[in-house]
Simulated scan of single mutants.
Amino acid sequence: MSVGAWEPAKQASNDQSREKIDPTLLTQILELMEDSSDQASSHTQASTELAELPETLRSASWLAGLPAAQWLEEAANWSPEQLWDLIRFFTLAERQLDWQGGAESPVIPLAKSLRRRKTLLSREQLLWIRGNSDNRYLPYGPL
């Protein structure tokens, strides 16, 4: 009889968290959100439908589970306007695509990145997030 160490099976999301965020996926998200911004003001827009999301984005739900440190590092590559579009996307993805982030939502480190740049979310943006999310942790995380 031998005694071995049991190791639990690793989930795909854990494997994905070790990968670098693919900028082409984020570019696709930004293009989608920019298209929706053309239809209405991004600060007052009630909602954007993500129903007709390309399969490459629909299958990228693992993005919602990446560690905050990765998102903070990635956020340095994007402008404040682009970060707002990413915040909008991940806020909507939680409700419309069931990409549950909870206290680990990408919205939190993206908003933190804006704060570090001294670019605070406006009152309208905060109201938009609240109006389009049931996640009590958005946009600043647990207290």
Results as ranks from 00 to 15, higher is better:
residue 1 M to K: 05
residue 2 S to V: 12
residue 3 V to E: 14
residue 6 W to G: 11
residue 8 P to D: 10
residue 11 Q to P: 04
residue 12 A to Y: 07
residue 14 N to R: 13
residue 15 D to T: 10
residue 18 R to V: 11
residue 19 E to Y: 13
residue 20 K to M: 06
residue 22 D to T: 11
residue 23 P to N: 12
residue 31 E to W: 00
residue 32 L to A: 01
residue 32 L to C: 14
residue 33 M to A: 03
residue 33 M to N: 05
residue 38 D to L: 11
residue 38 D to S: 12
residue 43 H to M: 14
residue 47 S to F: 07
residue 48 T to P: 00
residue 49 E to I: 00
residue 49 E to L: 02
residue 50 L to T: 02
residue 51 A to K: 04
residue 53 L to R: 09
residue 54 P to T: 03
residue 56 T to I: 12
residue 57 L to A: 07
residue 60 A to F: 02
residue 63 L to F: 00
residue 72 L to M: 12
residue 73 E to K: 10
residue 74 E to K: 05
residue 76 A to N: 07
residue 77 N to M: 09
residue 77 N to D: 12
residue 79 S to Y: 07
residue 81 E to S: 10
residue 82 Q to W: 02
residue 83 L to Q: 06
residue 83 L to Y: 01
residue 85 D to L: 15
residue 87 I to A: 10
residue 87 I to E: 07
residue 90 F to A: 11
residue 92 L to G: 00
residue 93 A to M: 04
residue 93 A to Y: 00
residue 94 E to A: 01
residue 101 G to Q: 03
residue 102 G to E: 08
residue 102 G to Y: 06
residue 103 A to T: 11
residue 105 S to H: 03
residue 107 V to W: 03
residue 110 L to W: 11
residue 110 L to A: 05
residue 112 K to D: 14
residue 112 K to E: 15
residue 115 R to Y: 09
residue 118 K to L: 14
residue 120 L to H: 11
residue 126 L to V: 11
residue 126 L to H: 11
residue 130 R to K: 14
residue 131 G to W: 00
residue 134 D to M: 06
residue 137 Y to G: 04
residue 138 L to E: 06
residue 139 P to C: 05
residue 142 P to K: 15
